[in-house]
């Protein structure tokens, strides 16, 4: 259980996290979603006491992280994969971490096997690929067999097999009744892994709800329609107050009416419809809609002014 209340972090004039309050409950995977720079990592760093909050409070299992007598057994955190001395081997890194809590070497070997690091465990961490670094970070997070697991962008740099492994791992941990808090800027990844979503943008919470609810709230009824008389159908639907968009000569996208209503209108006007596909609002769309105002670093397809172009190329 993670409880944040009015949690804030300011760096000078810039507010990275702005009085956010949320609870992360055990027994489910909670996704922490937001664009780059939204405050996800800062929040997670405050949870484990690496950054001191400028205001507010965050507790894990009822206490500030640093107040726990065995913090690694309470919370396992992957904050960034490269928080390891590059000249030390993965095995020795884990051994040094385990020693602080008197965690036996058998557990070190266990997490090495669990994360598939066996073949490279004795190699210098500096020679690791990004994916291997992630696996080591996850191994470190699991070392204390903690009740709360915090993973910041865990699938970064992982191959498809690794991505799937993290997904199963997160769900498995949650099903054992643990608290799992997982950040990502990838909506599609969250859709597959998380049960509950906390969406953050520019340091503020935009949404905090079960994933299905976020989808429903944002979703509009849409359908794709193929007909050989599109113009007539558009007119008929418009009379009904339904908007359409012509994608191809014989293909329309209809917004604001369900498939049955469209079929009825077509039947009334004796228009042949040879495809009628209801479109699910994608989670990606819902996310874009939620965060469109909150994205800190908008990408522009074209530089708008010469000065902007200069700074981007960084010459």
């Amino acid at each position: 259980m993670i409880e944040a209340a009015e949690l804030s972090k300011r760096y000078g004039a810039k507010t990275a996290v702005d009085r956010i309050s949320f609870n992360v409950k055990p027994g489910r995977v909670t996704g922490f979603l937001g664009p780059n720079g939204a405050g996800k990592s800062t929040t997670m760093r405050m949870i484990v006491g690496l950054d001191n909050p400028s205001g507010g409070d965050v507790r894990v299992n009822g206490k500030h992280y640093a107040k726990h007598s065995a913090p690694l057994r309470e919370v396992g955190a992957l904050l960034d994969a490269k928080a390891v001395h590059t000249k030390r081997s993965a095995y020795n890194h884990l051994r040094a971490m385990a020693a602080t809590h008197g965690i036996p070497n058998s557990r070190v070997k266990e997490v090495i096997e669990m994360t598939g690091l066996g073949p490279v465990a004795k190699k210098r961490v500096g020679s690791f690929s990004l994916g291997m670094g992630q696996r080591l970070g996850i191994a470190c997070a699991l070392l204390g067999d903690p009740h709360t697991v915090i993973l910041d962008e865990p699938v970064n740099g992982l191959d498809p097999e690794g991505v799937q492994w993290v997904r199963h791992l997160a769900k498995g941990l949650a099903s054992e009744g643990r608290t799992v808090f997982l950040s990502s800027h990838l909506m599609s990844e969250m859709a597959l892994t998380a049960d509950h979503l906390i969406v953050i943008g520019r340091g503020r919470i935009i949404a905090d709800a079960p994933i299905s609810e976020i989808l429903d709230a944002q979703g509009q009824t849409r359908a794709r329609v193929r007909t050989d008389r599109p113009a007539e159908l558009v007119r008929a639907l418009a009379a009904d107050g339904v908007s359409t968009q012509q994608l191809e000569p014989e293909l329309l996208e209809v917004t604001g009416a369900n498939s049955r209503r469209i079929a009825e209108v077509a039947l009334d006007h004796q228009i042949l419809v040879y495809e009628l596909t209801p479109l699910q609002a994608s989670l990606e769309d819902a996310y874009m809609q939620l965060t469109s105002d909150e994205v800190e670093y908008h990408s522009h397809t074209l530089p708008e002014a010469p000065s902007g172009a200069d700074s981007k190329e960084g010459k």
Partner: peptide, 8 residues
């Protein structure tokens, strides 16, 4: 960061 998370 690993050190300080282990010994906060």
């Amino acid at each position: 960061r690993s050190t300080m998370v282990a010994v906060p």
